[in-house]
Design a protein around this nucleic acid. Structure first.
Lengths: 201, 201
DNA sequence: CTAGCCATGTAATCCGTTACATGATTGG
DNA sequence: CCAATCATGTAACGGATTACATGGCTAG
């Protein structure tokens, strides 16, 4: 008998695929961004604190979306300016985006090089561990001022983008996490110093 | 003239490589874990909240470490038990591990599917956004109780592992972050409800 | 003239997971 | 006998970055 007949539940396991880039691009299309170049800039400038995307992902993805009918592409050649491909989302593109949006993201396996190093802290001296933490603390501080910059740029002109309230939520997330990191850094530095004096005794 | 002569600064740009798995494995060797299998178990059970590793990484890495003289391998065949390869770190392995430990990790590009979805929240109704946040909130809660489990297992028997104090630091990190996430979730739910009533007006 | 920005795209490569293949032992 | 656990490993695949290749326009 052919496999998979008879209503067996073994219709082939649903396979996990990531597809993050696909929907990031589709979402940016839905914001009205028209070129791959503009999307890269937008990722760097606005989404940098929680998303990244490279040309190597963006351009092939755009092509694929067009192939699947989720976007359209029109060439624009202007005299005196380089050629551009102008993309736009279609209604089936909007539909697929909405469907993706309501699916709760499954927890993605986190890898923190900092915590990995810290967990082996016993192999080096306390000073090295403390430096690790202080560097991280400084990075968080830099991140915080970067986030503030984006936030003021977002609030300054009173003309509100439709997505502005949601962008503010992501910014608050970045701030909340960085502040928690800072608190943990201070706490951890204290623990490291305690460990150090215990060791010396 | 041969390229690279004359002290040119173009000695080939130093190329970024990730190498996380390599040092995770080396570190676990330094803790005394002897088999690939044991390392996988340890990652799942103890490092799960900040690191992950698959067999597809572990076994080839172990072989590579032996090739480079950072570890040794001895076959152990016991009657009535399956064969094992027992690995041990060498002194050059310890040296390389220590060198890696003191290099501050460069910030790794974060990707949060949750924040990406939230940033496009305008495309779906407020209820869908709130569900996204509530699900995340629950996940954080589950993570917190999982962290507590590990912590009590770590504290229970008074026989302290040399790495115990450092593991506690990583656990506190997990807790700090999850608690900050929870606070942000509540704050954000409030904002979403406000947005909703504004829209309705 | 040249540096920098606009703009597109591809190929190589790396990193990592999943799925598969194998097989012995132990406990219920 | 069967499921779980111990134990090793590889092949295929997928996702993402990096580096390269190209080229015209603009401002200094």
């Amino acid at each position: 008998m052919a496999p998979g007949a008879n209503g067996e539940p073994s219709v082939s396991p649903p396979k996990k695929r990531r597809l993050g880039s696909r929907y990031a691009v589709l979402g940016m299309l839905s914001m009205g961004l028209k070129t791959g170049y503009a999307m890269k800039k937008h990722v760097e400038g606005n989404l940098g604190h929680y998303w990244s995307e490279s040309y190597g992902q963006i351009y092939p993805t755009l092509r694929q979306l067009v192939d699947e009918g989720l976007a359209t592409c029109t060439e624009e050649r202007r005299k005196g300016k380089p050629m551009r491909n102008l993309y736009a989302i279609t209604s089936s593109g909007r539909k697929e985006l909405r469907e993706w949006l309501v699916v709760p993201p499954e927890p993605q396996p986190q890898r923190s090089e900092l915590l990995l190093k810290l967990s082996f802290g016993d192999r080096v001296d306390s000073e090295a561990c403390q430096k690790l933490i202080r560097d991280h603390s400084q990075q968080c501080e830099r991140d915080l001022s970067y986030l503030s910059e984006i936030e003021s740029a977002l609030l300054e002109p009173p003309r509100k983008h439709r997505d502005q309230p949601y962008w503010l939520m992501t910014l608050r997330h970045g701030r909340a996490i960085r502040e928690a990191e800072l608190a943990w850094c201070n706490e951890t530095l204290e623990h490291l110093r305690q460990l150090e004096t215990e060791r010396k005794r």
